[in-house]
């Protein structure tokens, strides 16, 4: 792979999505972009980068961003944030918002929707404790392709066995052929929208809970700060931000402080 082509690709990707492509990720470029290069008749990465540069908002540029995005996800990933939501955050917010209130949850970089649907199932499990307060979940992602899949609420047998307890599968999914589909009561709580985290999020509205887990790890320091600033600008005063287990706001943003007794959960300062 030509170094100039690699850095041109890295520059494009960073400007477009904030994702940092370091030279040790060269193998990712090869494995993920090879089928697109073949389809587009590009002899090498340089030829593909030239096509991207020729139409920066064109379909090939979009596809490159989608292919270079990591979409790893599973139901109830890491468990603890969902326990925290169930036991503390959702009941507390419901009490504050009242019986006709709404709790808005943002699953940022939601990929194929497992996180958003996990929040929906969590809310349904504690519906009596929410005393009529509604929960609305918005899943956003940069990739149209993963959102198309998320919209269907359909998951393979393999996907429903990663993180999802069997009792939740039988309660909230129906089987359709070899796939499993979320039931309407779960699907009704969740909507999806294409969104770039680098954009000011005001058009999405205010949120009481933001899940931004295992996203910041792909960004450089200034981008992390910018994304956290964006989140802070739409988070309610008593809202909660969840990051991934290996992520922190320390040294990146002064807008958040860790919540006592909860790992990876933060409140506005």
């Amino acid at each position: 792979m030509n170094a100039a082509s690699f850095s041109a690709l890295a520059e494009f990707l960073h400007a477009r999505s904030g994702i940092v492509l370091t030279p040790d990720k060269a193998y990712l470029v090869e494995t993920r972009l090879a089928p697109l290069m073949r389809r587009e008749g590009c002899a090498d990465l340089g030829a593909l980068v030239a096509k991207v540069k020729a139409a920066l908002s064109g379909p090939i540029a979009d596809e490159v961003v989608e292919l270079m995005t990591t979409n790893e996800t599973l139901f109830f990933r890491d468990g603890k944030p969902f326990e925290h939501l169930r036991q503390q955050v959702l009941p507390k917010l419901a009490a504050a918002r009242g019986p006709r209130g709404v709790i808005r949850v943002w699953s940022a970089a939601c990929s194929t929707g497992q996180e958003a649907f996990s929040v929906a199932m969590t809310a349904l499990e504690i519906a009596p404790a929410l005393a009529g307060c509604r929960v609305e979940i918005l899943g956003t992602d940069l990739s149209r392709e993963v959102l198309r899949r998320a919209e269907t609420g359909r998951f393979s047998q393999f996907e429903v066995q990663r993180g999802l307890p069997i009792t939740m599968l039988t309660k909230y999914f129906r089987k359709d052929g070899s796939e499993w589909v979320v039931k309407d009561e779960v699907r009704a709580l969740v909507s999806f929208r294409e969104w770039n985290l680098l954009r000011p999020p005001q058009p999405l509205g205010r949120f009481d809970v933001v899940l931004l887990r295992n996203v910041l790890i792909y960004f450089d320091q200034p981008t992390k700060t910018r994304v956290l600033e964006n989140v802070a600008s739409v988070l309610a005063k008593d809202g909660v931000l969840y990051l991934g287990g290996a992520e922190t706001v320390l040294g990146i943003s002064s807008r958040f402080a860790p919540l006592d007794g909860a790992r990876s959960a933060y409140a506005l300062v």
């Binding site: 599973l74 047998q157 393999f158 066995q161 990663r162 993180g163 307890p165 069997i166």
Partner: peptide, 15 residues
């Protein structure tokens, strides 16, 4: 818990 075959290491670990 319940695993539907085929399984892999990740599914066994998760369950």
């Amino acid at each position: 818990e319940y695993i539907m075959k085929p399984f892999d290491a990740e599914i066994i670990e998760s369950k």
